[in-house]
C-alpha cells in the first residue's frame, strides 16, 4: 500500500508541475526550460522556511508560492518581447542561473538560511520535516498522499477557472497570433507576465510538497534534466487543456515503475527509461503531435 501512496504523492507533485508548465507552453506557446528551477525555488523556500526561519508548514507553503511567483519575473520581464527560439534561450539562461545559485550559495562557516549560506550548495538540505496542518503532522504516507492529491486538486481547480475564463481564451489567442491579439487592444505582455506568475508559483508549491515528502533536497532539482522531463510530460500527455498534463504526468511516472517489475537491474533500467522517453517523444511527434489527450499541436 505504501508503494501506491508513494506513487500518488509523486503524481500530485508532477501533476501540479505539468499543469503549470501547460500554461506557459500550451496556452502562451512559449517553450520554457526554466520550470525545474521554479520547482527547486519552492523546495528551497519550504525547507529554509521550516528549518532555518522558524515558519510553520502553511506559512512555508505560502512562502514557496510567493517566492515562485515573484521570481517568475526573472523569466517574464527580460523576455517581455521575446518568443520562439529567443524565449527558449532566455529561459535556459534562467534555469542555469537558478541551478548555479543553488549550487554555489554556500559557506561552510555560516549557518543555513543566512545570507552567507542560503542553500548549503552541493550538500543540499536534509532533515526537512513533514507538514503540520492544523496541529496534525502528516507523518504517515497515506496522509501525505492525501495532502499531495488535495493540493493538486486545488491547483487543478485554479487552472480550470483560469483556462475556461476569458483570461485563458486570450492566452490561446495570443499563442495563435500575438500581433492580431495586440491589435484588438489586449496587453499581451501583461498576460504573459500573469501566466508565468501563476505557472511558476504552482511549480514552487509542487517543490514544497516534494521537499516535505523526501526530507532532502539538493541543486539537482533545478537541473536541465528535470526541465526536460517536465516538458516531456506535457508533450506526451498533450497541452492546451486540463487533462493533457495530468495524463502526461501519469504516463511518465508509470514508465519507470513498469520497468521496476521486469527484474531489470537499476543501472540498465535507468538507461532504458531514458530510451523509452526518447522513443515515446519521437512516436508522439510523428503520429500524434497534439499528445495523447491534448488539443494544441506545437509548431
Amino acid at each position: 500500500m505504501n508503494y501506491v501512496f508513494h506513487l500518488l504523492i509523486y503524481f500530485g507533485v508532477y501533476a501540479i508541475l505539468a499543469m503549470g508548465l501547460n500554461l506557459i507552453v500550451g496556452f502562451c506557446g512559449l517553450l520554457s526550460l526554466a520550470h525545474a528551477g521554479y520547482f527547486a525555488i519552492g523546495a528551497y523556500a519550504y525547507a529554509l522556511g521550516t528549518l532555518a526561519w522558524g515558519l510553520d508548514s502553511i506559512s512555508a507553503l505560502v512562502l514557496a508560492f510567493v517566492s515562485g511567483g515573484i521570481l517568475s519575473f526573472l523569466t517574464s520581464l527580460p523576455t517581455w518581447r521575446l518568443k520562439g527560439d529567443y524565449f527558449v534561450m532566455a529561459s535556459m539562461a534562467v534555469q542555469v542561473l537558478i541551478y548555479s545559485t543553488a549550487y554555489n550559495w554556500v559557506s561552510s562557516d555560516a549557518q543555513l538560511g543566512t545570507l552567507a549560506n542560503l542553500t548549503n550548495g552541493p550538500f543540499g538540505i536534509a532533515g526537512i520535516s513533514r507538514p503540520v496542518l492544523f496541529g496534525v503532522k502528516l507523518s504517515s504516507l497515506g496522509a501525505m498522499a492525501a495532502f499531495s492529491l488535495i493540493t493538486a486538486a486545488v491547483c487543478m481547480g485554479i487552472c480550470h477557472l483560469l483556462q475556461t475564463a476569458p483570461w485563458g481564451r486570450t492566452l490561446k489567442c495570443m499563442r495563435d497570433d500575438e500581433l492580431a491579439t495586440k491589435n484588438l487592444g489586449k496587453n499581451v505582455q501583461l498576460f504573459k507576465v500573469q501566466a508565468l506568475f501563476v505557472a511558476c508559483a504552482l511549480a514552487a508549491v509542487a517543490g514544497a510538497i516534494y521537499a516535505s515528502y523526501t526530507s532532502y533536497i539538493d541543486p539537482s532539482l533545478a537541473s536541465m534534466d528535470q526541465s526536460i522531463l517536465l516538458l516531456s510530460m506535457i508533450f506526451v500527455g498533450g497541452m492546451g487543456n486540463l487533462k493533457g498534463p495530468l495524463v502526461g504526468a501519469a504516463i511518465l511516472l508509470l514508465i519507470p515503475e513498469v520497468l521496476r517489475f521486469m527484474n531489470i537491474p537499476d543501472a540498465v533500467a535507468a538507461e532504458i527509461r531514458v530510451m523509452l522517453y526518447g522513443l515515446m517523444l519521437v512516436l508522439i511527434v510523428r503520429f500524434k503531435p497534439e499528445g495523447v489527450a491534448g488539443d494544441y499541436k506545437v509548431n
Partner: peptide, 10 residues
C-alpha cells in the same frame, strides 16, 4: 489583414 489572421484554435 490581407491574410485575415483569425485565431485558428478558436
Amino acid at each position: 489583414w490581407q491574410d485575415v489572421r483569425l485565431f485558428s484554435s478558436q
